[in-house]
Design a protein around this nucleic acid. Structure first.
Length: 295
DNA sequence: CTGTAATCCTGCGAGC
DNA sequence: TGCTCGCAGGATTACA
């Protein structure tokens, strides 16, 4: 579920609720999450104070005041959290009844708790000794943040791949944070068929896609993300952008622009929604260079 | 290189 | 009412 807008919303919600709080204890279920949690870290986290929260792609980093003396002077421990498909990361009152699928609970001062709930357990919560090492590792496998992408680099990246736009947008190494919903919505906004290959795009089309990605994600953040089923923000509220989808999950419904029926095909192993009227599969009907070009 | 399928899980809606 | 099947916001791996 959670793509960049949802993760960003969680971080913004949790920042004022968590910053300055101290972890007084840890509880967790016996069920395994996607990545292992080392028992000795329960004690390491206990007593730590939260100094801030950050997002990178779909990752959440909770900075702790626990120093890491082997690295740079200000290096410190960090919690690295990924919400997977159904993860929920919320701060609640400590006496709030426990829901099912609750896997990690950080007990906090002021009678609060930071809870990680995840029905499908594709998510993860890890304790990392060094924020610097963690940042380095993440940066080495993840592409740039999708806002203010460099136009030249974006065009160059697309020019050298024959993969479909859908596959490229889902590739976290190409651009961090985009998932199935926003890949489809960005392609629609750019009027590009998701099955077009990267190298088939003209410079103008590359620019359109780059701008569309930023616009769609920005709008989604303004609506606090999308809730299809499970997603909630850091205080437990649902998102609102699902009501503004142009094509995602709307197969058969009329395109908001041209009224053609929205189509759904399988691309990159994922359902991909697009408007057959607005998003042409091929550029073969190129306007001859003789006359004026659109735009 | 690209694409496809299976894998990790639980739950829900469609269809019979 | 109940069953099976396919699919779901993610990410990785193996294989054609």
């Amino acid at each position: 579920m959670p793509e960049l807008p949802e993760v960003e919303t969680v971080v913004r919600d949790l920042r004022p609720l968590l910053t300055g709080r101290t972890v007084t204890g840890v509880r967790r279920s016996k069920q395994k999450l996607r990545r292992p949690w080392h028992p000795q870290f329960d004690a390491a986290v206990t007593g730590a104070r939260v100094t801030g929260l950050r997002r990178r792609g779909k990752w959440i980093f909770v900075d702790l005041d626990t120093p890491y003396t082997q690295g740079p002077a200000d290096d410190h421990a960090v919690l690295a959290v990924h919400l997977g498909m159904t993860g929920q990361f919320t701060v609640v009152k400590a006496d709030e009844p426990e829901p099912d699928h609750l896997h990690v609970v950080f007990e906090l001062d002021k009678k609060k708790e930071l809870r990680f709930r995840d029905q499908r357990r594709f998510g993860s919560v890890e304790y990392m000794l060094s924020a610097a090492d963690t940042d380095y590792a993440v940066d080495s496998v993840m592409g740039p943040e999708p806002f203010d992408l460099d136009p030249e680099e974006f065009r160059a990246g697309l020019a050298l791949t024959a993969r479909t736009l859908k596959a490229v947008l889902l590739d976290q190494q190409f651009v961090g944070g985009v998932g199935n919903i926003y890949a489809d919505e960005a392609c629609f906004r750019a009027r590009l068929h998701p099955a077009r290959t990267g190298k088939s795009l003209t410079p103008d089309e590359c620019d359109r896609l780059r701008v569309a990605i930023g616009e769609v994600l920005t709008r989604a953040i303004e609506s606090r993300g999308s809730t299809i089923r499970d997603y909630v923000g850091g205080s437990g509220q649902r998102g609102g952008f699902q009501n503004e989808f142009a094509v995602y999950g709307r197969a058969g419904e009329p395109c908001p622009v041209c009224k053609a029926a929205v189509a759904c095909v399988r691309l990159g192993g994922r359902s991909s929604h697009y408007c057959p009227g607005c998003q042409k599969a091929s550029t073969t009907k190129h306007t001859k260079p003789t006359k004026g070009r659109k735009n």
